[in-house]
């Protein structure tokens, strides 16, 4: 079985978002980078599927050259090979991103190494476009199930389950297929030291793609209005307990 997984390098924003002075992007000067929790699960799933069924796994990203860091992270978890589609330093929209990723898949198909399954995160944490996986699937003519939290792949079929309200709903599609996943699909492993060393030595295939005009032009980013909570310090350590009890009463949590 051949599994391909798509990831995106994103800044790891902590307690506070800081915007660049021109208001066009998030200021990443003091931030580290990583991939989203959804994508960590996609990578883990790809590694497990190949561990179980044999075959090979490929990770692909559209991003700047610095996204080599995220490709190596995926390889340190057990992904076999990596492709970097160079976006330069600009953020591409979802249509261009999907076209670039689809072309990487098509290239694999042309080489006779067609993937059976393409995994992505349900949505990127930063742009939140909710569409790249669907656009890739449409371009390839493959079925697509989104938001998947349970996945069984066997005999050329993917059975996928996702949440709908308080229920789970089940889909079954034949391979090749695109599946976009959500965190909770599995519990990703941490990279091992030997894994990290192996990943550093691996070659990364470079690809080029065309960016297209997409119609959406960002004017500015801004932070939403604060929700205006004012913090009352109830106390330090056990001294705070009397006030804590009062707060439980004030909020109606504890009957008077």
């Amino acid at each position: 079985m051949r599994v391909m997984v798509c990831i995106k390098r994103v800044p790891l924003v902590g307690g506070k978002v800081v915007l660049s002075p021109d208001g066009k992007e998030v200021d990443t000067k003091f931030l580290g980078f990583g991939i989203s929790p959804h994508e960590e699960c996609a990578v883990e799933e790809a590694v497990r599927l190949v561990e179980r069924n044999g075959g090979s796994s490929t990770v692909v990203t559209l991003g700047p050259q610095s996204a080599v860091e995220q490709l190596q992270f995926a390889m340190s978890l057990g992904i076999d090979e990596a492709i970097l589609i160079d976006s330069g330093d600009e953020e591409w929209g979802p249509m261009s991103t999907a076209a670039a990723l689809a072309s990487a898949v098509s290239e694999k198909v042309a080489e006779g190494a067609a993937p059976d399954l393409l995994l992505l995160g349900n949505e990127a944490p930063d742009s939140g476009d909710y569409q790249v996986g669907i656009r890739v699937a449409t371009a390839l003519g493959w079925p697509c199930v989104t938001g998947v939290k349970e996945l069984d792949v066997s005999d050329g079929t993917a059975v996928a389950r996702r949440e709908h309200g308080s229920e789970m709903e089940m889909f079954s599609v034949s391979l090749p297929a695109v599946v976009t996943v959500k965190e909770g699909l599995n519990l990703p492993r941490y990279p091992s030291l030997p894994g990290r060393l192996r990943a550093k030595g691996k070659k990364i295939d470079q690809m080029k793609a065309e960016r297209m005009a997409e119609g959406l032009t960002t004017l500015q980013l801004r932070l939403p209005a604060e929700d205006g909570r004012e913090t009352e310090l109830l106390g330090t350590g056990v001294d705070a307990v009397p006030r804590l009890i009062e707060v439980l009463r004030e909020t109606g949590v504890l009957a008077r």
Binding site: L19, D126, G128, G215, T217, L219, L221
Partner: peptide, 15 residues
């Protein structure tokens, strides 16, 4: 909304 609602984007759309 972007960043799960932590950032708002103002934009124009041609289609």
């Amino acid at each position: 909304l972007r960043w799960a609602g932590s950032v708002v984007e103002d934009a124009e759309l041609d289609s």
